[in-house]
Amino acid sequence: MDTTLSTSHAPAKTSVWSGGVRPFNISYGKMMMWFFILSDFFTFMGFLFAYTALKSSHPDWPNPDYVFKGFPLMGHHFNAPLLFVGTMTFILIVSSFTMVIAVDAGHRRDYKKTVKYMILTILGGAVFLSCQAWEWSHLIHGVKLSDTTVKMIKDTNGNMLRKEVPYAMVKLTDGIITVTPHTAILVKPLGEKITEEAGKAFTVSTNATDITLTPIGNNKPSAWMEFFNEGMTFGSTLTHNPFGQPLFSSLFFLVTGFHGFHVFSGLVILVIIAFNVYNKRYESRGHYEMVEKAGLYWHFVDLVWVFVFTFFYLLK
């Protein structure tokens, strides 16, 4: 009835996908860690993309160079953008490096070396977290924000530019700008600073309540912004940011906090695993894959930091 019928059947081609085989040649534990990392990467990217979207919809986004310019013990006037965060990045790269050595030692079932390098990694992570703690507190403690808040900023036409903002956030339109701080006490020191540092960009006149700036020539708003950023050090919190858009500091604390939380949980995992390695828990299993999985997670934390570093500190 049908010529295509045949009694013999050619055996199916076998490939790594034909079942009974691990097609990627990876244990499922490691694979699950990878997929977790992939999904966590999406979470981070959710944050960083939100950052990018908000940033590019604001003209007054602060320049990170003026925000992250301090260094521990160097005082408020130290001005070296990226130096500290570069150091932090260096520390994280070092800890990533020690971790990869620990994983390799684990493969060779050298438990002493594994523990040693894991402890080094944990140290690196801890130092990184401390650095982050310094950076956070450094940003938060500056001049008390309430002292520098300006209730209303108008241009000479009386148009409101911003409500309740610190000096540095004043938007510049063409023409003359009046800055009205709500406390007269502040005007004096700030006014002095302005007259001192405004250079040749503006003519400055101050009275008890107002500072009036008149641009000379074709000064650009950005130059003016930068002048303010350079001139003063303020503290920023989750909701206030003297350097410009408050969203900047909100996102900064949120994203570095989320990353820091990952570092912290990574540390907890590493401590537990190091302890298990030390107790030869994995020796009986015949392999140290747990170290490798923890290592994957740790490197992921490093990998994400690379992106956080770029988005927050580098891109202007």
Partner: peptide, 10 residues
């Protein structure tokens, strides 16, 4: 991905 029985290709 990993645990299909023998012969259970995609």
């Amino acid at each position: 991905i990993n645990m299909r029985t023998k012969g259970m290709s995609l």
